[in-house]
Design a binder for these strands. Structure first.
Lengths: 193, 193
DNA sequence: CGTCTATTTGAATGTACTCAAAAGCGGTGG
DNA sequence: CCACCGCTTTTGAGTACATTCAAATAGACG
């Protein structure tokens, strides 16, 4: 099992001793998903937070009219879950599925609480993780409020160049909050310039 | 100085000893703002995170066309700052101003880092704070993507009944991402039912 | 009371959506 | 290797949601 990526991810914010490292790794469950497999479906219990080792996932909300609203596009080295339901202990609001073949490490909520007690440094790690997630969402709200679709699209290209090559336009449209037809028109307009 | 509100806020997530409490309080700076005073302006250095003791603040982004985009409406017992700029050490992206006469407690970034070292429990406190903030913003993104303005407005009324009575419709419109005229029309339609 | 700002109303406009259909692209099986 | 299938992307027409601008009305505050 290759733990090098996740350990490097952790070490960006905290330093662990060998025993702490071993203990942390002992809590992880490894899982593989094929393209289009579901990690989570609306209504299920949300038991884990997930580190993407390789691959890519999308998290989306299916509204009553069955429109797919992509909340999060995540590739390797990102942490993903339905945080609302994970924290509140509610049933999942989101679907999470694999855009590509994907391997993840899972950390259960119960184990994470124990980890916080045994290795309080992880409070810091997840504080920083949540802080960054908050900032990211807030920037997204700002952009959604203040920019037209074209500018949001150009921004997306700049911000997630790695993602762009790996996901469909339809999914980018959903992430940006526009219809795929409209994004197509936007792209045409951009090309025209 | 009345520290009862902020101490109660802290105690929702962590328990402090007397010395820890005293030390924490020693780091706080008290500040009063009159209605329309600015706590922060775009371009300034963001040095503090702020607990609202009494009153209400709005945080907004002023886009190049000088449209006010309200990012956050916050009343007493909330923590507020321009988190992006606070964390990244960048100049402020947001304006933060008082909707009513307001009193706050301020915690500087430097002091907070020291606090984390001296009383690591605060890592946990801010982890939970950031986690809740992240969840809130994510729910907002979901709503912005999946609901029309009318539904978002009704939702806002349900979610922030205390806020509604204290802020103008124009500001609610900005928070929801619609023009004040359109919100007025939405309200008329709702009354009509 | 007068001034300033918020709210409402209406008309014209623009941005983005839906629906339908054609074109493009990738993978799979014969 | 190519033909076909399914899905994505593009195109176009008609429509709906939301904006801008302007003006009238209503409220809040000194």
């Amino acid at each position: 099992m290759d733990y090098s990526f996740i350990l490097k991810n952790i070490s960006k914010h905290i330093q662990l001793h060998q025993e702490e490292t071993d203990y942390f790794l002992s809590l992880l469950k490894y899982k593989e998903l094929k393209r289009k497999d579901f990690l989570l479906k609306q209504g299920q219990a949300v038991k884990t937070i997930n580190y993407i080792n390789t691959g890519a996932l999308k998290a989306y909300y299916l509204d009553p009219e069955s429109n797919e609203n992509i909340i999060m596009l995540a590739i390797d080295d990102w942490w993903v879950t339905d945080m609302y339901s994970y924290v509140m202990g509610e049933h999942a609001m989101l679907y999470i599925s694999a855009i590509e073949d994907t391997s993840i490490f899972q950390l259960s909520k119960d184990d994470l609480e124990i980890l916080f007690l045994k290795v309080p440094k992880f409070e810091r790690f997840f504080r920083i993780l949540m802080q960054n997630a908050y900032i990211r969402e807030q920037l997204r709200v700002i952009q959604n409020l203040s920019m037209p679709a074209e500018e949001r699209y150009l921004n997306f290209l700049k911000k997630y160049p790695l993602l762009v090559q790996r996901i469909s336009q339809k999914q980018i449209a959903s992430y940006l909050g526009v219809s795929p037809e409209f994004l197509s028109a936007v792209r045409k307009r951009i090309r025209g310039n």
